[in-house]
């Protein structure tokens, strides 16, 4: 249960960082933290304390593995979600560098030519 709270705390920290910080790099870090809190949450959903790896060895009955293994599905999901996160992160950093070239600053409050 405490671990779930850790995921929540991470999520809120990331959201705070995203909203309160003006530096673009810090905003990027914030969004990455929220992403990872969700990943942690997903992993925790499939976790079982003392569980075994979900690998079906020869001669092992299927019901046995279902009783003792951790849930493999969230692990697969988290892998995919990490890869997607990497894509988003790379794009964010690339845009951030281009922004720095144009504006010579990382401060979001100075990058405000659009009215929203």
């Amino acid at each position: 249960m405490i671990l779930y709270f850790l995921a929540l705390v991470l999520f809120v920290m990331g959201l705070y960082c995203l909203v309160a910080k003006k530096n673009i790099i810090k905003k990027i870090i914030g969004i990455t933290i929220t992403e990872y809190s969700i990943n942690l949450f997903l992993i925790l959903l499939g976790y079982r304390s003392g569980g075994v790896a979900p690998i079906l060895l020869k001669g092992m009955p299927r019901s046995e593995i279902a009783l003792h293994s951790v849930d493999p599905l969230p692990q697969a999901l988290v892998l995919t979600s990490i890869v997607i996160g990497l894509g988003v992160l790379a794009l964010m950093v690339a845009i951030c560098l281009r922004l720095y070239e144009k504006y010579k600053t990382f401060d979001m409050s100075e990058i405000n030519e659009l009215r929203g």
Partner: peptide, 30 residues
């Protein structure tokens, strides 16, 4: 250009939050 990059970054941040919320919802449903 300046404005395009700014708009893109804004969209990226808000879109990122949206995707996080969707993934969170899907994790809950699971």
């Amino acid at each position: 250009e300046r404005e395009e990059l700014e708009a893109s970054f804004k969209y990226l941040i808000l879109g990122g939050i949206a995707s996080t919320a969707v993934l969170f919802g899907i994790a809950f449903l699971y």
